[in-house]
Design a protein around this nucleic acid. Sequence first.
DNA 1: CACAAGTGACATGAGTCGCTGTCACATATG
DNA 2: CATATGTGACAGCGACTCATGTCACTTGTG
Lengths: 205, 205
Amino acid sequence: MPSTTRPYRGLSAEQRKAQRRARLLEAGLDLLGTAGCERATMTAICSRAKLTERYFYESFRSREQLLLAVVDQVADEVRSTVLAAVETAPDEPHARARVAISAFVDLLTADPRKGRAAIVESAAAETLRPRRHELLREFADLIVTQARSLYGTAAHAPPRDEINALLFVGGLAELLTAWLGNEIVATPADIIEAGTEQLAAALHR
Amino acid sequence: MPSTTRPYRGLSAEQRKAQRRARLLEAGLDLLGTAGCERATMTAICSRAKLTERYFYESFRSREQLLLAVVDQVADEVRSTVLAAVETAPDEPHARARVAISAFVDLLTADPRKGRAAIVESAAAETLRPRRHELLREFADLIVTQARSLYGTAAHAPPRDEINALLFVGGLAELLTAWLGNEIVATPADIIEAGTEQLAAALHR
DNA sequence: CACAAGTGACATGAGTCGCTGTCACATATG
DNA sequence: CATATGTGACAGCGACTCATGTCACTTGTG
């Protein structure tokens, strides 16, 4: 543990560390999103990142912690993307719902690794499951909030709102899972369409 | 491999083999439904069933095959339970939907091991995922069929029906997952209620 | 240039898991 | 009772993962 640092190949110690961390995260996303959670082992991640295990422990305590960071990274991207999309959407309920759902689905299907990491594989490991739930719940909350502000009131008394939102978002997740696993004949556009309609139907009462 | 068999402890060779197989399945369900897919290892299953690995290979080729059998067993139970429930239900759409959903949710929450095995852990392993999808799809098909026969026609052109059904069933699965993981404040009754309403809303157009 | 810090390839040890084999004991049958 | 079969406890092997350590080589600094 050198108390004094120094540049190397034109990069400061912090830059190098950050770069290594990024490479580990990228390798982690790659493996989690293609080989799956089970095969996203520490050895495999280091090998793909072309880094020694020592550098793994420099940035992460354990394999699970890195996977958490990977999922969190995707979740952050989902959050910012969806929020940005919603803000630029017109004030019409149907259009607004479609924009939000579209941003969600598009991001996770455009790069299937991200979709698998955030939706499929995050449901596999016990450690990741809470994050997945949080991600879905966050998106659901956004939908509910939008719906309330547009329709003017809460549709149901709690916790029915939470339940309904999760019921909807879970369905979306299932469709994404099926799409990512080639288990369904549908395009992302189909999924967006179905989701938008179902949401409208659920709110229109 | 004895070509000649003989009774032991009052049981024939086939009876003993079937008994061992049942014990392995029970141990598998227990581990899959509590410890999780990752910890449902062959050694652990044999240990819990109090059988040697030799007897494992007598009935199953691999760990994954046993887990498949466990999930299939639960899926079979779901199928027969739901079908039986639907047949004894009145011919009214809303009631019929409620009965089907109720049978589904009740079975998987009454014995959380079954719920976890069929819904949660079956989404974890690559090998089990197709079975989970099949189970959900089967239930979805049942819903669609019921809806068609009761409302008289297909609501949408394919594959939109399939998409909508999966969207609904996936939501149910998500709610069950959340309930099984104590991630939601809701009773099975709440889930059934929400599911029934959403289904009605989705069909009523 | 000499030397310390940074890096990468590899070795080692502990712990599991899958899988096979051995051996003693239990049980049925002639 | 004697023998063959059924059973259970356990040891051993190879493979893999995690975790730590060693050593040579590269790169920057005085």
